[in-house]
Structures are given as structure tokens and as C-alpha cells.
């Protein structure tokens, strides 16, 4: 076995090991989800205007539940799914607006695609400025 072949094999092994470790970190760090039917409340808050939606869903993550009602539009990015519009109202970037996600009174640190939902959750989508 020549030197190049040895180096290639070591490199491939290193990649496989690293991939295995990272996949393990990914799966063990994911928040617990709840399967099966659930009902959540979604409040769309724009200033003093509040619209409330009840969503019955089997979805495990918020994005899927919101998409079942065609409630939002957005785009995927490095930090997760970024909501750009809710119930037809698009956040105006020129006015530094954005749609904030609050789950059970606490702002989420994850995008809608990685925010798990459970039966009884109250989700607030608040048009905010930064």
C-alpha cells in the first residue's frame, strides 16, 4: 500500500468518525417532540390587533402546523425557517419589522421548523421591530 493510499484511508476514516460524532450530537440535542393529535392556539399579534387560530394537528413542529392552515410564508436559512409573512401580512424590512415567535410566554430560540409543539401550547406570532 503506497503512502497516498494510506493517507486517503486515514482521511476517509477521519471523515466517517467525525460524521458519526456529529450525527449523534444532532440527534441527542434535538428537543423532545410529541407525536399524535394535538391542539394548539396561535395568536397573530400586530399592534393592538390580535387574531386567534385554533389548530388541530398531528405535526410535531410548529412550521408544519402553521403550513396546514397556510398561515405563514418564509424562507429557510442557517438559523432555521425564518417567517416573513403571517396571515398575509409581510414584515417590512425597511421598517426593521420581523415576526417574533413566542411559545407559552417565552421567545423561542429556534426557527419554526425546529420548534416542537405539544397539546395545549399557546403560540404568539408578534410583529416586532428591532
Amino acid at each position: 500500500m503506497n503512502k497516498q493510499t494510506k493517507i486517503v484511508l486515514i482521511a476517509v476514516l477521519a471523515l466517517v468518525v467525525l460524521l458519526g460524532v456529529f450525527v449523534a450530537v444532532y440527534y441527542f440535542s434535538r428537543p423532545d417532540t410529541e407525536s399524535g393529535g394535538k391542539e394548539i392556539i396561535v395568536k397573530v399579534i400586530e399592534g393592538d390587533n390580535v387574531k386567534t387560530f385554533e389548530i388541530k394537528t398531528d405535526a410535531e413542529y410548529l412550521l408544519d402546523a402553521l403550513n396546514e392552515k397556510n398561515l405563514i410564508a418564509g424562507e429557510s436559512g442557517r438559523y432555521g425557517y425564518y417567517i416573513t409573512a403571517v396571515d398575509g401580512r409581510t414584515a417590512n424590512e425597511d421598517k426593521r419589522e420581523w415576526w417574533q415567535i413566542v411559545k407559552n410566554g417565552e421567545q423561542t430560540t429556534t426557527g419554526a421548523d425546529t420548534t416542537p409543539i405539544k397539546d395545549g401550547d399557546i403560540i404568539e406570532l408578534i410583529l416586532s421591530t428591532y
Partner: peptide
């Protein structure tokens, strides 16, 4: 880092 891991898999 963990939030972006799935993009790192795609990148790899």
C-alpha cells in the same frame, strides 16, 4: 453550532 448542524451535513 448545533442549530446549524443539518446545514453542515449538506455542506459536507
Amino acid at each position: 453550532w448545533i442549530d446549524g448542524l443539518k446545514f453542515d451535513f449538506i455542506h459536507c
